[in-house]
């Protein structure tokens, strides 16, 4: 298992190289001159020239790329817009995103799994129908719309919670609920579908045929099998959310990494976008690695395949 983890971490190097080239070229394909956008329409040609020289924007692409990579490796990439080191700006925002993600998942994972499993165990009951309608709403409702409604009700009408910002814990609640609602719905639907499918498997029939009580059949024999696909979905969502829930962050003015990178795209801040995307790629690979390790803990087949490899 240690070997597997080492392999996957080493694999990060080619992945990040590929991402760096891809995102570098992609940024240069977008129309718009960072110098003009940052210095403004009324900037003098001298000012523009100064910015271009400072960031090597007037050099051939190959030189620009090499310069960027050199700066990256020495940790000295500077934002074109703010002229501050990108890492200094990125980390606090990433921490904000982690807060939001973890808090949302802390609500969504237990709630989603519980509701989905209960719905499947009591199929076609009132509870099942209620959960499924709610979950359908959750996956179909646009997050920005739900966010605005929550602001209207809890911030504007009732005045219980702040509508935005990140001063304290209270500011975390509404954006987390917004994300958690969609996430809970997704997990609940998945858990229910997988549980219904699992309950029709032959090994479940065996457990029933040997007189095990239904509680044990559902919550032990079926549940462990259901956890395998659920871990996949949660892992993917976790990686995705760590990339920043841009819409939610925008609605609530939450200074997360998603908004940071999107702002970088708008101002053609090549440094911010390139570093940001590479950083997120790395996070995504590492999260997937974590999911694979979890797999090994749940599924004995994966464990065997890994130890054979």
């Amino acid at each position: 298992m240690g070997k597997l983890i080492l392999m996957r971490v080493l694999l990060l190097i080619p992945v990040l190289l590929g991402v760096s080239i891809f995102i570098f070229l992609l940024m240069r394909l977008i129309p718009g001159d960072p110098a003009i956008i940052i210095a403004g329409e009324n900037a003098t040609p001298e000012m523009l020239q100064q910015i271009r020289e400072e960031f090597a924007l007037d050099k051939p692409l190959a030189i620009q790329y090499v310069t960027f990579m050199k700066n990256l490796l020495s940790g000295k990439v500077v934002s074109i817009k703010t002229r501050r080191p990108v890492f200094e700006e990125l980390f606090p925002r990433f921490l904000n995103t982690i807060h939001l993600t973890l808090f949302s998942m802390a609500i969504a994972i237990p709630l989603g799994i519980t509701l989905g499993i209960l719905a499947a165990a009591h199929r076609n009951s009132l509870l099942d129908n209620f959960v499924m309608v709610l979950a359908l709403l959750g996956v179909s409702m646009p997050v920005f719309w739900l966010g605005i409604i929550l602001i209207l009700v809890f911030a504007v009408q009732l005045g219980w919670l702040p509508s935005g910002g990140k001063e304290g814990f209270a500011n975390l609640i509404l954006p987390s609920l917004t994300i958690a609602f969609a996430l809970t719905s997704m997990i609940a639907r998945m858990a229910r579908a997988m549980m219904v499918e699992t309950l029709s498997k032959e090994y479940i029939r065996t457990a029933v045929a040997y007189g095990l009580p239904r509680r044990k059949v559902v919550y032990k024999y079926a549940l462990k099998n259901v956890m395998i696909p659920i871990v996949t979905v949660i892992g993917l969502q976790f990686g995705y959310l760590l990339g920043g829930a841009v819409l939610t962050e925008s609605v609530f003015g939450w200074p997360g990494i998603g908004r940071y990178i999107v702002d970088g795209i708008f101002s053609r801040d090549y440094s911010v976008v390139q570093v940001g995307i590479m950083f997120l790629s790395m996070v995504f690979v590492l999260v997937n690695l974590g999911v694979d390790v979890l797999y090994m803990l749940i599924d004995p087949k994966v464990r065997r395949d890994v130890s054979k490899a």
């Binding site: 457990a207 462990k224 599924d299 004995p300």
Partner: peptide
């Protein structure tokens, strides 16, 4: 009354 099934592959739970 105990029962055994046709498919011994799938009649036992894979994760226990």
């Amino acid at each position: 009354i105990a029962m055994i099934f046709q498919e011994p592959m799938t009649s036992l739970n894979p994760v226990f």
